[in-house]
Design a protein around this nucleic acid. Structure first.
Length: 724
DNA sequence: CGCAACAGTTTTCAT
DNA sequence: AACTGTTGCG
């Protein structure tokens, strides 16, 4: 069996998973253990060897990128197209179900998808219209609440609560849902919830898909939430084969509803399931794996897994204690330059941080050193303001009742429809339970608006109507071109000056060509091209614009690094309060999730891992003195190599706010230099942060590893330079 | 309506 | 510190 081409290059465990019989299976796949490979080979095996039609296979992923990569690799392996196989994200698949059965779920044929930005605006409007205090009821929180409930599968009417706060939130939820339903809008959570209700309540539909999908494979299963798991349960009837692939140690999305427990739940629900552990790692050196294993071992309730490698130990992990965040950045830049000078590619280097705010200092240092870099996770194409404006017009052309769209562009560009007028329209709509469009039309027809406002509203209505009428047989490209010019959007941004406005104009033109090049998925041929495009824009917000091809250092959060690998990785800001983050430190569950995030970060590294932390860090304009992260003490000391501070910091370059002279001055006055490691009889080891005064009475500030920051009088403190 | 000053906020992210 | 969104004024 090991000679079969589909399994010949695999290790024993991988081969077992790929060629397994038809039975439920859990593949516990450690970081770098060839998880995607197994999934891809399994699908190919089912088709080629077991003669399953691609039509009868369903594969679910979390990102569009993962989905298209998987499809591509399966096709490459098989040498043929698997176009009629369903591979997609939960949301993409739910969307398909809803489009196919829109009548069964009570949606208009041209329903639109609301992204989280749209959703937040809508919720905000509603809170205002309910005369609630916006300070006490932040839209974001209400949005969070609504999505959380939907993720749990709960409609407003299912919520029973005597808590007055939650009662209000429930009312907002109700009003929001009513408003969405009236406007034909579906948010991301709603896609899943509705599709779930469809499968649950409609026997015919459910049995149809159960009959169709003989094999169901789910990737990144540790990231599924309640409704997604319920979905899988419904789709797998008596004899469908479910394969789940995941890693409980890499579950880092609990904060947005992901339930690691679903893995255990799966084992309970499918008692015949076979568990396969992939523990051989093909990515990292022995040292990195040893340290990562040692960190994750501190978590409880793991399903248990130990990564090992046949490769060599590699070099120890570098640990650098920076004086502050500028020094941290400076050190990193130095190491990157060294890497590059030794022939390393910049794109092989990743800088990881816990929160986006930390990227700025790193960027400045990279800019300063003229090292090109690329940041992951900025605004993506379809999320840009000007693009969303244009899309809103397109949405109105498709569906006049789209309140979110009309709110966005009724006065963009300004056409004399001010807040006054808008409020009258909103009020009318609310009172008569109509959409904004209907209310506006009615007000114009019944001449209930003052002259100027009436003209303005009438011409807006006219604009949308004529655009729709006169572009009926236009291609998508022509239509979008027509829309951005007729609406005045293009002219508006062209009139603005500055670099920002120029890119906006470019983006609008880019949108036109995106429309021109858009090819509809064949499975969506029952949709109008416009609706297909709008759904595409909402579900796949598009890559952020970046010069992907340039050799550049990669900057990203630890979260967005999941699934990637780099020869050289810097894990930065590894301090208590930053990583683990402050908010996570009081809740044990959250702390374990941070630890998994640390594990994810470390296992991104193939050859070199550098961990840095700063004694002093400025966050939101305030200085903090954090202790070293506990995660570092969880690593085996012999896997780490502490970079000597003295040699690095005593001659600081004059970069940023760093004071060149301070170190010398401090030394003359206290006998110790800033950044120096010292030992105190009682407090242990620490780092010199600051000083005050002269002579033996001078005081110095030290951040002790164990007890935190303290001011000590030099004469009494009996400090010694630390050797460790 | 448009501008400017002001106040309030800030994890992590895909869909 | 930097950004957003709101408010108040001309």
């Amino acid at each position: 069996m090991s000679t079969h081409p589909l399994i010949s290059g695999l290790n024993e465990k991988q081969a077992t998973a790929v060629s397994a019989d038809d039975r439920p299976m859990l593949v516990l796949a450690g970081a770098g253990s060839g998880k995607t490979r197994v999934l891809v080979h399994r699908i190919a095996w089912l088709i080629q060897e077991r003669r399953y039609s691609p039509y009868s296979i369903l594969a679910v992923t979390f990102t569009n990128k993962a989905a298209s990569e998987m499809r591509g690799r399966v096709e490459q392996l098989l040498g043929s197209s698997v176009r009629n196989m369903w591979i997609g994200t939960f949301h993409g698949l739910a969307h398909r179900l809803l489009r196919a059965h829109y009548m069964d779920v009570g949606l208009p044929q041209n329903f639109q998808i609301l992204d989280s930005d749209d959703q937040q605006r809508l919720v905000k409007r509603l809170i205002k219209s309910m005369n609630l205090d916006e300070k006490r009821w932040p839209a974001k929180q209400a949005q969070w609440y609504i999505n959380g409930k939907k993720d749990e599968g709960l409609r407003a009417q299912h919520i029973e609560t005597f808590d007055p706060t939650e009662q209000t939130l429930k009312q907002i939820y109700e009003a929001y849902q009513e408003s969405c339903d009236r406007a034909g809008l579906v948010d991301f959570a709603e896609l899943l919830l509705r599709a779930h209700e469809l499968l649950r309540d409609n026997k015919t539909v459910r049995e149809h898909y159960q009959k169709r999908f003989r094999h169901i494979l789910v990737d990144e299963f540790q990231d599924t939430n309640s409704i997604q798991y319920a979905w899988i349960r419904l789709l797998s009837g008596q004899d469908n084969i479910v394969t789940i692939v995941g890693d409980d140690d890499q579950s880092i999305y609990g904060w947005r509803g992901a339930r690691v427990e679903n893995i255990q739940q799966f084992l309970d629900d499918y008692p015949a399931a076979m568990t396969i552990r992939l523990e051989q790692n093909y990515r990292s050196t022995g040292n990195i794996l040893r340290a990562a294993n040692s960190v994750i071992a501190n978590n409880s309730d793991r399903l248990g897994k130990d990564l090992w490698t046949e490769g060599n130990e590699g070099e120890p992990i570098s640990l650098y204690a920076a004086f502050n965040e500028m020094d941290e950045a400076r050190y990193i830049v130095g190491r990157i330059e060294e890497w590059r000078d030794q022939g390393g590619a910049l794109q092989d280097v990743a800088l990881l941080y816990r929160s986006n705010a930390q990227s700025r200092v790193l960027e400045e240092a990279l800019l300063h050193a003229r090292l090109p870099y690329r940041i992951y996770g900025g605004l993506r194409f379809f999320e840009r303001q000007e693009i969303k404006d244009a899309l809103a017009y397109l949405r109105l052309v498709s569906n006049r009742d789209d309140d979110a769209a009309i709110e966005r562009v009724i006065n963009t560009p300004t056409r004399g429809i001010g807040n006054r007028t808008l409020d009258i329209i909103r009020q009318t709509a609310r009172e008569q339970k109509k959409s904004l469009w209907q209310a506006a039309t009615q007000l114009v027809d019944e001449k209930q608006l003052a002259g100027r406002a009436r003209n303005a509203v009438a011409s807006f209505i006219e604009l949308i109507n004529t655009t729709d009428d006169e572009t009926e047989d236009f291609t998508l490209g022509r239509l979008s071109n027509e829309v951005i010019s007729r609406s005045g959007l293009l002219a508006m941004y062209e009139a603005e000056k500055g670099e920002k406005a120029e890119t906006r104009v470019e983006n609008l033109k880019e949108l036109v060509s995106a429309c021109e090049n858009f090819t509809q998925d064949e499975t969506e041929e029952d949709l109008t091209p416009l609706n297909a495009f709008l759904a595409h824009a909402a579900l796949e917000a598009g890559e952020e614009q970046a010069d992907e091809y340039q050799d550049a250092v990669q900057l990203m959060t630890l979260h967005s690094a999941k699934g990637l690998e780099f020869p050289m990785v810097f894990m930065t800001g590894v301090e208590e309060g930053v990583f683990p983050s402050q908010q996570s430190m009081d809740e044990p569950g959250r702390l374990e999730e941070e630890r998994r995030l640390c594990y994810v970060g470390m296992t991104r590294a193939m050859q070199k891992l550098v961990i840095t932390y700063a004694e002093q860090r400025r966050i939101y304009g305030q200085d903090f003195f954090h202790k070293v992260s506990r995660f570092i003490s969880e690593m085996p000391a012999d896997a780490l190599h502490e970079v000597r501070l003295q040699t690095q910091v005593q001659k600081p370059t004059s970069y940023g706010r760093f004071n060149t002279g301070a170190s010398h001055e401090a030394f003359e006055q206290t006998g110790f230099s800033l950044g120096q490691r010292v030992r105190h009889a009682k407090f242990g080891d620490g780092t010199v942060l600051n000083y005050e005064g002269t002579g033996p009475q001078s005081r110095i500030q030290i951040n002790f590893d164990q007890v935190g920051t303290k001011w000590l009088v030099v004469a009494y403190a009996k400090l010694e330079p630390s050797v460790s």
